[in-house]
Each structure stands twice: as C-alpha cells, then as structure tokens.
Simulated assay, not measured.
Amino acid sequence: MKIIITGATGMIGEGILLASLDHPDITVVLMVNRRASSLKHPKLSELIVKDFTDMAAQKNQLTGYDGCFFCAGTSSFGMNEDKYNQITFYTTIMFAKQLAGFNPDMVFFYLSGVYADSSENGKIMWARIKGKTENALNKLHFKVAYSFRPGFITPLKTQKNVRWIYKGLKLIYPFVFPNQTLTYDKIVSALIRTLTLGYHKNVLEIKDLKFIAKQAISNPF
C-alpha cells in the first residue's frame, strides 16, 4: 500500500509518519513537505513542495498512491479568520483537488479536530473553518474522503517534535481520560483498515477510531 503524508515535520504528522513506517501493510511512504526532514527509512521518500496550491509540476511524483494522510495545518492561536481560512481551508482544498485529479481512486484522510463544526455556523472560528473544510473535501472526486478527529494522542518515544505540555499530559491524561486518548499505532491501524474496507461515516470520531482499530486487531486482513 502506497501512502502520501503531509505535515510530517509537525507533532501529529510526525507521529502518523512514524507509525505508518512501522505498519506492515504500508510499503511506500511519500512525505510532502515545505522543508526537508532528516528522517531516513527504506520505505520513505520525500518531495519538497513550496506551494501546496500549485503542484502541476509534481504530477508524476504524486501519481499512483492509494491514500493520503493530510496532517498539515496550523494553530488558530493569535490568527485572524481570513489568515486561518487561507491556511486551513483554501490550501487544504487546493492541494486535495490536485491530488484527486492525479489519483481518482485515492482515499483521502484529513486531520481535523474533536470540536470541528460541521454546521459551519458556530461561534468558534477554528471549528467553523475545520467543519467547512471537512464538508468541502466530501465533494471532491476521490474514491472517498474521511476526516479524523483523534483527540489526545500519546506521543511516541521516538518523536522529536513534541510540545512540552504533551510531555507532562501523557503521564496523566491517558489514565484520567482513557476514552479520549489514542495512540498513533491505533490511529494508523484504523485509517488503513478504513482505506481497505471503508466505513459508514465520513467523520471518524475518537470512538470510531477506537472501534476500527479494535476490529483491525481482532479481525486482521
């Protein structure tokens, strides 16, 4: 199985990348980054793209993939709505439109947020824009597009890009809120099973990811 990953130089993207490299059903991983990564692995290759909204020149390098884990993004902290919309909605949709044109049989997975607002009418700016992005992705010409909302993810020991607050929370949060906590291994297992077998919802909440990951363990391919 051949996978594209974006956002691999960020915290969650890095965790998804490392878990993907360890997954036995994933044979090829292409990370699409704006800046180079020092990570090396036999399954891994890298494509540096300066502008995610214009990838026509990289068409051949982005063709022939089964899935994409889109983990690129930014925090809304200190950012006005127009700027956050440009990064979170516009850039994501432009990237996805091009990728769908290159790979119409691809399954696309978008890293969203637990409180994303699918109605697009709520008071929380980032949640509205995340919800708008989820909805727009469902209209593109992929085989299918899913949005996953993972909640708190326990950092991997091998991760380098872990925010300091997560280093403390990982000692407490999984024990106090086990139903709101996931591991990267379970997320990737859930995404790969969904890519292969499909799922009845386009938005994968924490409980969905846990359920699918459990199915992957108890009923492997």
Results as ranks from 00 to 15, higher is better:
residue 5 I to V: 14
residue 8 A to Q: 10
residue 10 G to E: 09
residue 10 G to P: 09
residue 11 M to D: 10
residue 13 G to W: 12
residue 15 G to P: 11
residue 20 S to L: 10
residue 24 P to Q: 10
residue 25 D to W: 01
residue 27 T to E: 11
residue 28 V to G: 07
residue 39 L to Q: 14
residue 39 L to R: 15
residue 41 H to K: 11
residue 41 H to P: 10
residue 42 P to N: 07
residue 48 I to H: 08
residue 49 V to Y: 06
residue 51 D to S: 11
residue 52 F to T: 04
residue 56 A to C: 11
residue 58 Q to S: 15
residue 60 N to D: 15
residue 65 Y to D: 15
residue 67 G to V: 02
residue 72 A to L: 08
residue 77 F to G: 12
residue 79 M to K: 13
residue 79 M to S: 10
residue 79 M to T: 13
residue 90 Y to T: 05
residue 91 T to D: 02
residue 92 T to S: 08
residue 97 K to E: 03
residue 100 A to R: 04
residue 100 A to N: 10
residue 100 A to W: 04
residue 101 G to L: 02
residue 105 D to W: 06
residue 106 M to T: 00
residue 109 F to K: 04
residue 116 A to N: 15
residue 121 N to P: 09
residue 122 G to W: 14
residue 125 M to W: 08
residue 126 W to T: 11
residue 126 W to A: 15
residue 127 A to K: 13
residue 133 T to K: 08
residue 135 N to F: 12
residue 137 L to R: 02
residue 139 K to I: 07
residue 140 L to E: 03
residue 140 L to G: 02
residue 143 K to V: 03
residue 143 K to I: 01
residue 145 A to C: 07
residue 147 S to A: 15
residue 150 P to I: 02
residue 150 P to V: 01
residue 151 G to A: 07
residue 153 I to E: 04
residue 157 K to Q: 14
residue 159 Q to C: 11
residue 160 K to E: 10
residue 161 N to H: 11
residue 166 Y to H: 11
residue 168 G to N: 07
residue 169 L to I: 05
residue 174 P to I: 07
residue 174 P to E: 07
residue 175 F to K: 09
residue 178 P to S: 03
residue 180 Q to W: 01
residue 181 T to S: 06
residue 186 K to E: 05
residue 192 I to Y: 01
residue 204 L to M: 03
residue 207 K to W: 03
residue 208 D to Y: 03
residue 211 F to L: 12
residue 213 A to K: 00
residue 218 S to D: 00
residue 219 N to Q: 01
residue 220 P to R: 00
